[in-house]
Design a protein around this nucleic acid. Structure first.
Lengths: 154, 154
DNA sequence: TCGTGCCTTCAGTGCCGACCGAAGTGTCGG
DNA sequence: CCGACACTTCGGTCGGCACTGAAGGCACGA
C-alpha cells in the first residue's frame, strides 16, 4: 500500500522544521517555512496555517511575525474583512545563509580583542594566535564566495 | 584607576563563552575553552578549572568530557595520585568550523529530497528550486575554500 | 587490604523558551 | 453604534537543558 503524496510532503516538512529547530528557529516557524515552500496555491492565511499545521493561532501569529521580520515571509493585506495572505519570500533565503556565515566570521573580533590583551607576551599568545589566524583566513575567503554567486545582482 | 590584566582577561573569557553559548555550547564549556586558550601555564587540572571558573566539579567534569570528545581539549594523565592535566588543542579548532559549514551545506539534502517529491510539477517546485539552487551553489563553493587554506596539510 | 585523593555519575533544582488558548484590540460592513 | 471577524497579546503550563553537590568508583601508595 503506497503512501500518499501529501503524507510524504508532511513528513518532509517535519524533517525540514526539525533541521532548523536545531539552528534555533522554533519548530512551528520551521513548519511554516516548509509548508509555504511547497503549498498550492502559494498563499495562505494565518487561520489556514493554524489548521493545516495543527498549531494554535497564537503560535502562528508569533512565528509569522518573526518570519516576516526576518524577511523570509511576505504579508499581503486585502481590503475588507478579508484575512491577510502570507507567502514565502524565497529570494531572501540568501540572507539567512549570509547571517550564518557572518556569525561564524564575527568570532574574529573576539580573537582579535584577545590578541590585543596578549600583546607583549608572544609566548602566551601562541594558542590564541592559531585560532585567530583561522578566523582571519575565513574572513578573507568567504566574501569571495559571495562574489562568485550566480545572479548576485542584488 | 586602571583595571588589572586578569580582570580584563576574565571579561574577555566571559564574552568568548557568551558567543559560543549562542551556538549551543554550554556556558561553562565556553569558559573552559577561553580560559585554556590564554592561561599560563597552559595546562590545568579539573580542580583548578573548577576554582578559577567558579563552577562545580560536576559541571567541569561534564564539560571537559564533552570538549575532549570533540577534540578541542586534550587530557594528559600522570602517574601516581596526581590529577590529570587538561590543555587546549587549538589545532582542532578547524574541525569546529568545518562542522558548522557542513551543517549549512547539509540542508541541500533536504531541498533535494523536496525537489524529488515535487517532480512532475515544475510550477509548484519553483519556490523550493530557488532555495535548492542556493544550497547547491554553496556545496560547490565551500570545499574550494578549504583547499585554499594555508597549511591545510592534515 | 586499607586509606586517600581525584574524578565521574546522577538525582534534584532552577531557569528559560516554546506553546496554548482566552482575552483584548482593531477594523470593517451593516 | 453594533456585531463579526482576523489577528495580536499575554498569563499559564510544560518540557528540556545547564548546573549543583553529594555519593560512588577508580587508581595508586602504604
Amino acid at each position: 500500500m503506497s503512501v500518499g503524496r501529501e503524507t510524504r510532503l508532511s513528513a518532509w516538512i517535519e524533517r525540514f522544521a526539525a533541521h532548523f529547530a536545531e539552528e534555533g528557529i522554533p519548530l512551528i516557524g520551521g513548519r511554516i517555512l516548509g509548508y509555504l515552500l511547497v503549498c498550492q496555491p502559494t498563499e495562505r492565511t494565518a487561520a489556514e496555517l493554524s489548521q493545516e499545521l495543527e498549531a494554535s493561532s497564537g503560535s502562528i501569529s508569533t512565528n509569522l511575525k518573526f518570519l516576516v521580520n526576518a524577511g523570509l515571509v511576505t504579508k499581503r493585506t486585502r481590503r475588507g474583512r478579508q484575512a491577510a495572505q502570507y507567502r514565502i519570500n524565497e529570494k531572501r533565503w540568501v540572507d539567512l545563509i549570509q547571517r550564518k556565515l557572518d556569525a561564524l566570521v564575527s568570532v574574529r573580533e573576539l580573537t582579535e580583542a584577545g590578541m590585543r590583551l596578549m600583546s607583549g607576551d608572544p609566548e602566551r599568545a601562541m594558542r590564541l594566535r592559531t585560532v585567530d589566524d583561522l578566523y582571519t583566513w575565513l574572513a578573507t575567503e568567504l566574501p569571495g564566495v559571495w562574489e562568485r554567486r550566480p545572479s548576485s545582482s542584488r
